[in-house]
Design a protein around this nucleic acid. Structure first.
Lengths: 133, 133
DNA sequence: ATTGGACCCTACCCTTACGTGAGGGTAGAG
DNA sequence: CTCTACCCTCACGTAAGGGTAGGGTCCAAT
C-alpha cells in the first residue's frame, strides 16, 4: 500500500560531504568535469544524491592518493562499470579487460613512485633531524 | 700569473637543468618566486649559475616529495642557512632551532601522510588486480 | 501565513607550480 | 659573417579545487 516514499534515501550535498569527507566545492567540481553523474534536483534546485553516488565518491577518494587526473579516474571507473554489465560481446569484454590491465600497470607505477617519494622524504627528515642536534 | 679564470665554474641554465633533472621553466620559476637567488648574467643576459646554486636545487628536489609549498621551502632553507652562520646571538640561534624543529615536525607529518597514501594506493591496486581475475 | 536559521544555488575570480608557445636575441665554432 | 644551439622575456593555459558575493530554498516554530 505504501509505495510512494519518494524523497527517502536522497541526501543533500551537505550530507554527502559529511559522509565522504569531501567539500561541497569538490563534489560540485566532480560533477562539472563529468566524474560524478548529475544528480536529481529538488523542485527548488537542490542536488539530491543517492547512495550510489556516495559509493562512487568513496571510490574516487580511494583513488586520489594515486595522483590520477580526474579524467583518468572517470575513464577507469567507466571501464569498471561497463565490465560489470553482463551483456557484452566477448570482444568488448576482452577490450575492456585489456584497458583495465593497462590501468592496473599505471597504478603499480604510481605506487612505486609513492614509495620512492616516501623513502626520499624519510631521508630528508633524518637529515633535518641531524641538523638540529 | 693565471689568476683570471672568470667564466669557469659557471653553468648556463641548460646545463643546470641537465645536472638537476629540473626543467628550464622550473628553474626560472624558482627564481621568480625567490626560492633560488638571482644568478649572475652573461653580458648578453644569459643566466650563469654557480655550483652552490646546483646544490640548492638538489636540496629543493629532495624536499619536493614532501608536498611543501615553494614558500615553505624557501623559508626552511633560509632558516637552515642562517643557522649555518657562526655569528648569531644565543637567542637568535635558539629561535631558529625552534623553527627548524617545527619544520621537522611538519616533515614527519607529511611523511606519515605519504605512507598512508602508499598504503591506500596499495589497497586499491590489489582491488583492481582482483577485479581483473 | 510568516519568519528565521540552516542549507543550497550559480557565477566568477584566486591559487600553486609550472607547461607551452610566440617572437626575438646570444654564444661561439667554422 | 653565418649557422646552430641556446637563451631571453612576456604572457596566456592548466588542474583541482578554495573562497566570496548575492540570492534562493527548506521547513520547523510561531
Amino acid at each position: 500500500m505504501t509505495e510512494a516514499r519518494t524523497p527517502i534515501d536522497l541526501l543533500q550535498i551537505g550530507d554527502v560531504a559529511d559522509r565522504t569527507g569531501l567539500s561541497l566545492r569538490t563534489i560540485r567540481h566532480y560533477e562539472e568535469v563529468g566524474l560524478l553523474p548529475e544528480p536529481q534536483r529538488s523542485s527548488g534546485g537542490f542536488r539530491l544524491y543517492t547512495q550510489e553516488a556516495i559509493e562512487r565518491l568513496l571510490l574516487i577518494k580511494r583513488m586520489k592518493p594515486l595522483d590520477f587526473t580526474l579524467d583518468e579516474m572517470r575513464d577507469l571507473i567507466d571501464v569498471r562499470d561497463q565490465l560489470a554489465s553482463p551483456r557484452l560481446s566477448r570482444a568488448a569484454r576482452a577490450d575492456l579487460t585489456q584497458r583495465l590491465r593497462t590501468y592496473h600497470a599505471l597504478v603499480e607505477h604510481s605506487l612505486a613512485g609513492l614509495r620512492e617519494r616516501a623513502a626520499s622524504a624519510e631521508a630528508f627528515a633524518r637529515q633535518l633531524g641531524d641538523e638540529i642536534d
